[in-house]
Amino acid sequence: MKNFQSIVMIILFSITSVFSQEKEILEKYGITVNTLQEGLKEGEQAYTFKAKDQNGETFDLKKALKKGPVVLNFYRGSWCPYCTKHLKNVQDSLSLIEATGATFIAVTPELADGNLELAKKKGFTFDIVEDSKLEIMNGYKVTFDVNEGYQEMLKKYERDLTKINAIKRATLPIPATYIISQDGTILKRHYDPNYKVRMSVKETLSVLENI
């Protein structure tokens, strides 16, 4: 009996230790752990939406899917160097993505003015839409509230999320990527709380070329 109790205690300690380590890592990435959503999964139906792009035109996911698959990317904002680097890689290979019949769309909580400025500065020709009420982010379950420590760090660099974001809240998406088939099924997703890790263009093209 004592041996059994000891084993149970060891297991419980291990689980608690792993959770504590995971929580610490997530908090390092600016995540308030109890607000983190788990993201839509592969095989589930994509959340459809209409939203204004950087040019004030309406992007309609349902209409885009009638033309071909859609690559949907969530990014934190123009202030994030990891986001802009990833989007630059996409732009450099955009012709290859579009050659598969696919559409690439980027979604951010940032104000539309910031999106337009970013597109002009970096030469982005794909649509960037402002998720002004977090409806798209919540639809794909990629939302989290930014913890106070990370907010204060960003403010030192004059990046106040309560001013940059359209909804005036310090809320961000996991920088996830979803590849959606024409019937609205999520074929592939990249979901990683580590904002330094993204779905590569090579992997994106591999999926698209095999649809």
Rank of each mutant, 00 (worst) to 15 (best):
Thr48Glu: 05
Val18His: 06
Gly68Phe: 13
Lys156Ser: 06
Tyr157Ala: 06
Ala166Thr: 08
Gly39Val: 15
Leu205Thr: 09
Phe49Asp: 02
Asn210Trp: 08
Val207Asn: 06
Ala64Arg: 02
Val8Ser: 05
Arg76Trp: 02
Lys62Phe: 02
Thr143Tyr: 14
Lys133Val: 15
Ala170His: 12
Asn194Arg: 03
Met153Asn: 10
Trp79Lys: 07
Gln21Gly: 08
Lys122Ser: 12
Asp160His: 04
Glu22His: 07
Arg169Gly: 03
Glu44Asn: 10
Met199Val: 11
Gln45Lys: 14
Met9Tyr: 04
Ile211Lys: 05
Leu205Pro: 08
Val207Arg: 04
Gln182Gly: 05
Gly30Asp: 04
Ile97Trp: 02
Val129Lys: 01
Ala64Val: 07
Ile10Ser: 04
Lys66Ser: 13
Thr84Gln: 06
Val129Pro: 07
Lys52Tyr: 02
Met1Arg: 11
Arg159Lys: 09
Asp127Glu: 12
Asn210Leu: 11
Tyr47Phe: 15
Lys163Arg: 13
Ala119Trp: 00
Glu158Thr: 08
Leu65Gly: 04
Lys52Ala: 13
Asp131His: 03
Gly30Lys: 03
Leu26Trp: 00
Ile97Lys: 07
Ser181Glu: 11
Leu116Gln: 14
Thr171Trp: 11
Asp160Ile: 01
Glu148Cys: 06
Lys202Leu: 11
Val90Tyr: 13
Ala166Val: 00
Phe124Glu: 11
Lys41Cys: 14
Ile105Cys: 01
Tyr150Met: 08
Val146Thr: 11
Asp127Thr: 05
Lys188Arg: 14
Ile97Ala: 09
His190Pro: 03
Lys156Trp: 00
Phe144Tyr: 15
Leu40Cys: 07
Glu44Arg: 00
Lys122His: 12
Met199Ser: 05
Glu27Arg: 11
Thr108Tyr: 07
Lys50Tyr: 06
Asn3Pro: 08
Phe59Gly: 00
Ser132Thr: 15
Val129Arg: 00
Pro193Asp: 05
Lys41Arg: 15
Phe19Asp: 06
Leu40Arg: 15
Gly77Arg: 07
Leu61Ser: 03
Asp127Ala: 13
Gly39Trp: 01
Val197Leu: 13
Gly114Cys: 06
Leu40Tyr: 13
Thr108Ala: 13
Phe19Ala: 12
Tyr47Glu: 00
Glu110Asp: 09
Thr32Asp: 12
Glu38Gly: 15
Lys23Gln: 10
Lys88Asp: 14
Gln91Met: 01
Leu12Asn: 12
Ser206Asp: 09
Thr35Trp: 00
Lys121Arg: 12
Ile164Val: 11
Leu72Val: 09
